[in-house]
């Protein structure tokens, strides 16, 4: 069965301020989809609507053809994992504790974790390359390490859909690449649907299969990087002057910003 996310004519307002206007998009398995756009364009709001953290309208967000507003939180959590933009944990949990929390939707009622849960957690720790931190306190690790732990938690959720909100913005270049590689690998090998908000246009160009460009709550255009990340569209959406070349290694577009308009 195909696990896909479909957004049909979604609008969303914070009070009187309309943040999303008639959004239509679809995200398919085995593809990494990037949501790009300037600050305040509605990327995170769209992601939170899909994740059902914000309450979307009826008949606007579908997971596997089911209206998300008709699904219970545990049902949604079994289908979809979310890596939030920032994580702030005040309590002294260990890294392993936090990753184990990813198993929450799979643990029935008030019972405790099983051996299977522990194996999955181990796999997630290794996949996100945080196994060596396992016994450490979550408060004692660096921001980049924390980000990878949160990704491990999402992996431990074992969902077919993973939503990420700027997953690599706090990481160094090595970890940026390694996380993006892991995400694309999982998406392609296991046919996972990945939706990720990104800021770095070049990273998006490199790793995303599909990119949606947002501006003022509307999708300006969507498609493969080569079609979307063109000089005129970037200039229109971001209000900048830039140059677009072809990356000689990957043959993907490469953007060099020149100046703001």
């Amino acid at each position: 069965m195909e696990r896909s996310v479909k957004v049909e004519d979604l609008s969303f307002s914070y009070g009187n301020r309309e943040v999303l206007k008639n959004i239509c998009a679809s995200f398919k398995p085995g593809m990494v989809c990037g949501l790009l756009g300037p600050n305040g364009s509605g990327k995170t709001t769209l992601l939170k609507n899909i994740a059902s953290i914000l309450k979307p309208e009826k008949n606007a967000v579908y997971i596997n053809c089911r209206d998300i507003t008709k699904m219970t939180p545990p049902e949604i959590a079994k289908e979809m994992a979310l890596v939030p933009q920032s994580t702030n944990i005040d309590f002294d949990f260990t890294v392993e504790d936090i990753v184990m929390m990813g198993r929450t939707p799979h643990i029935k009622g008030f019972s405790n974790e099983t051996n299977e849960d522990r194996e999955i957690v181990q796999w997630a720790l290794e996949t996100a390359r945080v196994n060596h931190l396992k016994g450490r306190s979550i408060k004692s690790i660096s921001g980049g390490e924390l980000q990878r732990v949160v990704i491990a938690r999402a992996l431990a959720q074992k969902t077919r859909i993973i939503l990420l909100d700027e997953p690599v913005s706090q990481l160094d270049i090595h970890h940026q690449l390694s996380i993006m590689e892991t995400i694309t690998r999982l998406s392609h090998e296991q046919k996972l649907t990945i939706v990720t908000v990104l800021h770095d246009l070049n990273l998006a160009a490199e790793y995303c299969d599909i990119i949606y460009l947002l501006k003022d709550g509307c999708i300006v255009c969507g498609g493969p990087p080569k079609e979307v990340l063109t000089y005129d569209k970037i200039e229109n959406v971001y209000d900048i002057v830039c140059l677009v070349y072809e990356n000689p290694v990957s043959k993907k577009p490469h953007i060099i910003p020149v100046s703001s308009k």
Binding site: P84, T87, I89
Partner: peptide
């Protein structure tokens, strides 16, 4: 205790 939005996304 690790965050309300996180908890919500964990079902």
């Amino acid at each position: 205790s690790t965050g309300e939005e996180t908890a919500q996304s964990l079902g």
